[in-house]
């Protein structure tokens, strides 16, 4: 049975990111025992949020050195803690997790299974399932090292719910600093400011393509507001400047799997499908009846989106009144 170390990710507001709950679900699914390591400035306060998830311990490294997400600063401490008897080091495959995990694996001489979508214990050996070829195939893999590192895809491991109990909190020391970290200076974060839910956590996503042109927000915002949805975008819409880059869903951008996904004016390039094919219900609205998006849509509507979306808002109001 594996002893798993889950790496929590902190948000700039000093809380543990919700995405961390997917790595906790991975740990539960893998079986065995797990502890959670929270690193960052203010980690001690944040740790209190996650003592009710069944971890043996919540380990805390609270240090101003870890104020910003510079992985060269995080990796030495993660690796040092990992050496205290952990078999698997798990992080959610957010941009932070994907940045950090290989660096930790290299430090530990561990094998790394990136962006996994499932885990199974087969006769004491963990078998990881992961999407390849933009989600057009799945590979089952095992790691040939005693210590293993994984990143878990947020859209495939649902957020863990509290399980009760209260894990003891224990401080861990900051490990010796890496020389490489001295050559990285954090200049700043240009954060997208939005009142909407995060794409990775939203139950409903309304995504738009290039066909929306300059009316991207004008057309989609009322629908998103109505549904309490996050707004996403295709690569083409981002490249053309109709939507900001951080809204992009796809191989570049975010991988999402909401309960309900609207693809509006999106043709359905492989690049985009890779990011949303796991959604439970997919609705496509496009005026081209041959658009590839209709091949993955549960409900397709061939229509001019500039008429159909406002009508949809009106009909939804009626239906949910």
């Amino acid at each position: 049975m594996a002893n798993i170390l889950v790496i929590a990710e902190m948000a700039p507001d000093g809380k543990v990111r919700k995405s961390t709950h997917s790595a906790i679900t991975f740990a539960r699914n893998a079986g065995g025992t797990f502890s959670i390591l929270v690193l960052g400035q203010g980690a001690k306060a944040a740790a209190a949020e996650i003592t009710g998830y069944g971890a043996q311990k919540v380990l805390v490294c609270d240090d101003a050195y870890l104020a910003n997400p510079i992985v060269e600063r995080f990796a030495p401490t993660v690796a040092a803690v990992a050496k205290n008897g952990f078999d698997v080091i798990a992080v959610t495959a957010s941009s932070f997790g994907k940045d950090l995990a290989p660096r930790v694996a290299a430090k530990l001489g561990a094998g790394y299974a990136p962006d996994i979508s499932g885990v199974k214990d087969e006769g004491g050996k963990l078998v990881y399932r992961r999407p390849v070829f933009a989600g057009n195939a799945y590979g089952n893999c095992t790691l040939n090292t005693a210590v293993q590192v994984v990143s878990a895809r947020q859209s495939e491991f649902s957020a863990a719910e509290p399980s009760g109990g209260s894990s003891p909190i224990e401080d861990v020391a900051l490990a010796a600093k890496d020389a490489a970290a001295e050559r990285v200076e954090f200049v700043g974060l240009d954060a997208a400011k939005s009142e909407r839910p995060d794409l990775g956590e939203a139950r409903v996503i309304v995504s738009g393509g290039r066909a929306l042109k300059e009316k991207f927000a004008e057309v989609l915002d009322p629908l998103a507001n109505m549904l309490g949805a996050a707004v996403g975008a295709s690569r083409a819409a981002c490249d053309a400047g109709y939507a900001p880059a951080e809204l992009q869903v796809g191989q570049t951008g975010r991988v999402v799997a909401p309960r309900l996904y609207f693809a509006i004016g999106i043709s359905g390039a492989i690049q985009h499908l890779a990011g949303m094919k796991g959604s439970k219900t997919i609705v496509a609205i496009n005026k081209d009846p041959d658009a590839p998006i209709f091949q993955v849509a549960d409900y397709g509507l061939v229509a001019d989106l500039f008429n159909a979306v406002p009508e949809l808002v009106t009909e939804l109001k009626k239906a949910t009144a």
Binding site: A110, G111, Y112, A113, V127, P131, V132, G135, N136, A137, Y138, G139, N140, C141, T142, L143, N144, T145, K277, I282, P289, F294, Q295, V296, A297, D298, Y299, G300, L301, V302
Partner: peptide, 20 residues
């Protein structure tokens, strides 16, 4: 090598959708 792939499979097909 540190990783061994034991097999690949295609993703489960999505149920065919409908046009409304």
């Amino acid at each position: 090598l540190k990783i061994t792939y034991t097999g690949f499979e295609l993703p489960p097909a999505r149920k065919a959708g409908i046009k409304v």
